[in-house]
Amino acid sequence: MDASLVPARLRTASGCLAPIAPDTWALDWARCDEAERVSAATRFGIPPSRLAELIDWVTHRFDKDFLWPNVFLTLEGARDFRATFVPADSDAFILGLALSNEDVDGLPWRTEPDPTVGEVGLHRSLSRGFPPAAGGVRLGSDVLGAELDGTLHSYLCNGLEHVFSRQLGALPNPYGLFDDHALARRCAVYAGRDDVGAEPIPWRAWVLTEYPCHPAQPAPALGS
């Protein structure tokens, strides 16, 4: 990434750039060796001694409020996980994702349930059409592409910060996101062009909201 365009610390829902918990490593039936599970949990300050409890917790909630591969259907579920397993002094944060109605309606349903694979969390969440939960701080819009398995890639995974800056005058804010949602939507359209060379997946502008880890906490301050 170009340090002149991208801040040192980011907010993103792309697992390529940021560790996410829980993820598929937290499901007991997922193909994942013990060392990988321990490493993923340790990055969030979760000791190996609690790994079995965590896996049991996540597995029992799967297809209820925790969805494939790493989506909580509710803010309450995400807060419950963090309060139960992640140390209070961790810098882990809770992000909510949202799409405008226009982008949901026009999204090719690559995330639609496959009888041989099952439903991914993005499809179920978007199909319900719930508005973002209250009580958070909108950080900006991220240009993300959706894979078939429900994972997301940031525009930064494809080195598009240069293209967006040069062709569209789009510069990321201190979170690596775009303050102008309409401009982020134009960036997403641009990313989907064949001549750009980004991954051939549906690109959309997703609004990212950060939520306090406990409902009694104040909303996160911008710039923190």
Rank of each mutant, 00 (worst) to 15 (best):
D56F: 12
L148Q: 15
F93G: 07
V120K: 00
I94P: 00
R166Y: 04
L144V: 13
L97W: 00
G129T: 08
G129V: 10
D179S: 14
R110I: 11
G135Y: 05
V58I: 12
F178N: 05
R79F: 06
F93Q: 02
I55P: 00
R128Q: 13
Y175L: 06
H123R: 04
V86K: 01
W109E: 10
A52M: 10
G176N: 01
G96F: 00
A92L: 05
E53Q: 10
I55Y: 03
V163E: 08
R124H: 11
S141P: 03
F66S: 04
G135C: 09
D142C: 07
N101Y: 06
D149G: 13
T116S: 13
F66R: 02
S165W: 12
T151A: 14
S154P: 13
L148C: 13
S165H: 15
E76K: 09
D91A: 12
E76W: 07
E112W: 13
L126Y: 03
A52D: 14
F164W: 12
V86H: 01
L122D: 08
I94Q: 01
H60D: 15
V71W: 08
S90D: 08
D80A: 12
F178C: 10
P108V: 07
W57A: 12
E76Q: 10
L160F: 15
A146K: 01
G77P: 02
T111G: 02
P132M: 09
R110S: 12
A133N: 06
D56M: 14
E147M: 13
W109H: 10
S127A: 13
Y155S: 08
F72S: 01
P131Q: 10
A146V: 10
P47W: 09
N173K: 15
R110L: 12
G140P: 00
V71F: 04
Y175N: 11
G140F: 04
E119V: 07
R124P: 01
S154C: 14
S100W: 04
R79H: 04
F81L: 02
V104T: 09
V86T: 02
T111M: 09
L99S: 05
G150Q: 04
P113C: 04
G145R: 00
P113F: 02
G150L: 11
